[in-house]
Computed example of a mutant assay.
Amino acid sequence: MIETARLAGFFTAHGIWCVSEGETLIPLIGYEHPDGEYGMDRLVFDDLSEGARAGQDALADGDPSWVSAVLVADGYIHLDQGKTDALLVEAVRYGPYRQSMRLAVPYRPADTPRGFAVHRPKFMDAECGDPQFNAMAEAFFVGAASHTEAHAVWDAHLDESV
């Protein structure tokens, strides 16, 4: 799952880069081939939720050429301060023992009075005490940092108060 967490970080950073200017993210599916190469498809539909559903179907079905895949979609999560914009991320590692992870990266949209901000990722379906959790979280951030243009935006707008 470490490689999959890295893939998730890379494509989540790409999503952050897209929403940083106020754009609503068109759902995207990023994937890794056996040779380590990444690919990405935008899921363009009349309705963004249709694109997200198509991405969930694609993740569930997989593709014979994918080792791992990640879906990144724009949405909301509920935090202590209420309904919050977030990139919703689902990642899958294919193989004989399919593994998955889910997380959300809350953000403050650019068109708000205080401007764009990226908040701490919220890992779901993971136990913080699990020894693998720390390694997966670290791999996620390594993947995000490997997308240099996007990571510069993320780093410049980081607000860890949420």
Rank of each mutant, 00 (worst) to 15 (best):
P27H: 07
E127R: 14
E90K: 07
I29S: 00
A73V: 07
D41T: 08
Q99Y: 05
T12R: 02
E37Y: 05
G15S: 07
E160R: 11
A73H: 11
E32S: 15
R53K: 10
A91P: 09
V70D: 03
G30F: 01
V142T: 15
A126C: 11
A60H: 13
V105Y: 00
H151Q: 06
I26Q: 13
I29F: 00
A156Q: 12
D35Y: 06
A150L: 04
V118L: 07
T24K: 03
F11P: 06
R108A: 10
A117V: 03
D57R: 14
G55Y: 14
I29G: 00
A144W: 07
V89L: 01
D61M: 06
R98V: 15
S20F: 04
L158D: 07
A69N: 07
M124V: 06
G75Q: 06
W17E: 13
L59W: 08
R120D: 08
I16N: 07
D111Q: 10
D57I: 12
H78K: 11
A152F: 08
G9V: 11
I16P: 03
P64M: 07
G39L: 09
P34A: 11
T112C: 06
L158A: 15
G75S: 07
M1Q: 03
D46F: 00
P64R: 12
V70I: 10
E149Y: 10
D111H: 10
P106N: 02
L158W: 15
E23P: 01
L59T: 05
H78E: 13
R53L: 05
